[in-house]
Lab assay of single mutants.
Amino acid sequence: MSGNGNAAATAEENSPKMRVIRVGTRKSQLARIQTDSVVATLKASYPGLQFEIIAMSTTGDKILDTALSKIGEKSLFTKELEHALEKNEVDLVVHSLKDLPTVLPPGFTIGAICKRENPHDAVVFHPKFVGKTLETLPEKSVVGTSSLRRAAQLQRKFPHLEFRSIRGNLNTRLRKLDEQQEFSAIILATAGLQRMGWHNRVGQILHPEECMYAVGQGALGVEVRAKDQDILDLVGVLHDPETLLRCIAERAFLRHLEGGCSVPVAVHTAMKDGQLYLTGGVWSLDGSDSIQETMQATIHVPAQHEDGPEDDPQLVGITARNIPRGPQLAAQNLGISLANLLLSKGAKNILDVARQLNDAH
């Protein structure tokens, strides 16, 4: 009898209710805020589980004197976190989706994509230029951005401005803007500013005609071990179906173009009346040469937790077992079709030249 009692006690200790789920994140304040929001949602869904947040620095956090596009290494903000995932030191990792490459290392998958916040870019102005827009900034004003995508589009749109690289986390960039006289304004992701509670610093939100956004911008991705079915089931509740389908289309477009950090590629997606609209573009580094096109596809946005595919093969690095396969494939095909259209119009040449120029500098 006593033996059975011990077995029952052991089973209770090993039951999922007692389990601590370890969540990996970057150390920056924004990353911690984003991770806290994901953990809060998981806690609400699984009140019996405990969650421990483990923060670590990544290569991208450490190399702050070089433009991201020049470092010449993929997975700048993800490699150390993936290493911890691989060694079973954490069970899942919360990322900004735009930091996750469209091809993940073997053994990993994006197990959830959370509801997207505003994906557009924002302009934050130096205190002396508050009330201005990019259009009304004085001639030769210097605007800071760490992104080739932003610089290429904005140089084309605002030729009277000069664009220079600015690195560091959000706090560091804002301090550089406010305390030094080098920059009249800087460009940042609206979602990051909003998550930090800095709505009052948003001086201008850039519309798609001015600057399309990065693939996955404004959404959070939760990376897990691809074979860890328990954790895949656990994080599945975080999937937002519309965000998922938009981001599958965007990531398929980028992957098929073979774009990345070192080339200016941008997108804009919208879901309306059962249609998914995808606009994508590529630019030369100075913005003088560009190709942009829009395509659409009829896609039914499923309700969360309709029964999805059981075999769960990944699409552009994403596993969404609780979302039907048909809409996911339709979104992926839309991204591939748009990429093929741009490639047929000469996108590869623009991107190759951009890559060579970026590598040469």
Rank of each mutant, 00 (worst) to 15 (best):
S147W: 06
Y213S: 04
G280I: 00
A270S: 06
K98D: 00
G236L: 05
E306M: 04
G197S: 12
L285Q: 07
E80G: 08
E135P: 11
N169Q: 04
T41Y: 10
A252N: 01
D178H: 12
L92R: 02
K43F: 06
I54S: 07
D61N: 04
K140Y: 09
T269C: 15
H120A: 05
A270H: 11
G218L: 04
L100W: 05
T78D: 05
G48M: 07
V130C: 14
F77E: 01
K345G: 05
T243Q: 15
A330N: 13
R173L: 04
L188Y: 01
S288T: 09
H207W: 14
P47W: 05
Q304V: 03
R164T: 12
N171P: 06
K115Y: 06
Q50P: 15
V267E: 05
V130N: 13
Q304G: 11
V265N: 01
K348D: 11
A331P: 02
V93A: 11
F253Y: 13
N88D: 07
T279V: 08
Q275D: 02
A185T: 14
H305L: 10
K98G: 00
P101K: 00
R225D: 07
T133V: 09
D61P: 03
N340F: 07
E117W: 12
T78A: 07
E250I: 01
G280S: 04
K74C: 05
T109F: 04
F129H: 10
R321D: 05
E80Y: 02
Q275F: 06
T190H: 15
K272L: 07
N118T: 14
H120G: 09
D311E: 14
K128H: 12
Q181C: 03
N333S: 00
G168A: 02
G197I: 00
L188W: 02
I299G: 01
T298E: 11
A347K: 00
V282L: 05
L188N: 06
K98M: 01
I53L: 12
P264Q: 09
I350Y: 15
T269K: 00
L193H: 04
Q217C: 03
R175Q: 13
N88K: 14
V38E: 04
S290I: 15
A330S: 08
L341R: 08
V130W: 06
R225Q: 02
P105K: 11
E86N: 06
E139S: 09
H83M: 13
L351R: 07
T172P: 05
D228Q: 15
Q328E: 13
E310Y: 01
T78Q: 10
Q296R: 13
V94K: 03
Q194N: 06
L244C: 13
V90A: 07
T41R: 12
K227T: 07
D311Y: 07
L342R: 01
Q204V: 13
C247N: 06
V237C: 04
D99F: 00
P241C: 14
L343E: 07
G308S: 10
I63N: 13
G144F: 00
D273R: 14
K43L: 08
N333C: 02
T319S: 11
E310N: 00
I350K: 00
D65G: 09
K128Q: 05
V222C: 10
L42F: 09
V301F: 11
G197K: 04
M212S: 09
T136W: 14
G218P: 01
K79N: 13
H126C: 13
E258D: 09
G317I: 09
F129C: 07
P101E: 08
T58W: 00
L81E: 03
G144K: 09
G111A: 05
L177I: 07
G107N: 07
F253I: 13
E52T: 11
H83Q: 13
L238G: 01
S96Q: 00
N349V: 10
I291Q: 13
I186T: 14
G287N: 03
S141K: 08
Q296Y: 11
P327R: 03
H126N: 10
R149D: 04
D91S: 09
H300S: 08
G107M: 13
D286Q: 11
E89Y: 13
L148F: 14
V123N: 00
D233P: 05
I63K: 05
R173M: 01
P105C: 06
R195S: 02
P309I: 06
A122W: 00
L85C: 11
P241R: 02
D307A: 00
K98Q: 03
V202S: 06
E223D: 08
D352K: 10
E242S: 04
S337L: 15
E73S: 12
A40I: 08
D352V: 08
E52K: 05
P47A: 06
A339R: 04
P101A: 12
S290A: 01
E306F: 15
I231H: 01
G259H: 01
T41F: 08
Q204I: 01
I291W: 08
R225K: 04
W198A: 13
V39W: 06
P119Y: 09
T319W: 01
I336R: 15
R325L: 14
D230W: 13
V130G: 07
M295R: 14
E82N: 10
P106F: 13
A320S: 02
D228Y: 03
P101V: 09
A112W: 01
D352Y: 14
A151V: 11
K98H: 02
S262H: 03
S45M: 07
S184N: 13
T78R: 02
L285S: 01
R225P: 13
C114G: 07
N333H: 14
R325K: 08
L220Y: 09
